[in-house]
């Protein structure tokens, strides 16, 4: 069971943060996208901060999976769980980059 969790944890956390940021995007656009923010529009500020946080979480997970204490014993499961860790990190950066690059509420 622990091995299964090691393999699944990073991508599942990606899915959670992806959905959460999509929901947050819906929320900030529902509230008042026109409100002025400090220098940049506040929807983008909030979403970019959440994006950064999601990346940090994934890096932390990857470090845990690679550590001797929480990672799997060397072998098949270790390889697949580390691959899962990379999938989570790459997916977080790849799928949430629009927070920096596209129009939030148009």
């Amino acid at each position: 069971m622990k091995d299964l969790l090691r393999i699944l944890v990073s991508p599942v956390i990606w899915l959670a943060s992806f959905s959460a940021i999509y929901a947050l995007h819906g929320l900030v656009c529902a509230v008042d996208p026109g409100m002025p923010g400090p220098g940049i529009a506040w929807p983008r500020l909030v979403l970019s901060l959440a994006f950064g946080l999601a990346i940090l979480v994934q890096i932390g997970l990857l470090a845990l999976l690679a550590s001797a204490r929480f990672g799997a014993a060397p072998g098949f499961v270790r390889f697949v769980s580390l691959a899962g860790g990379w999938v989570g990190l790459v997916a977080t950066v790849w799928t949430l980059i629009p927070t920096l690059a596209t129009t939030p509420c148009g």
């Binding site: 790849w94 629009p98 690059a101 596209t102 129009t103 148009g106």
Partner: peptide, 18 residues
Amino acid sequence: LISLLAYGLWLGERLIPR
């Protein structure tokens, strides 16, 4: 895929009403 995605998003930005 990254190049295609970037182009698609750029084009999408151009096409939305402003």
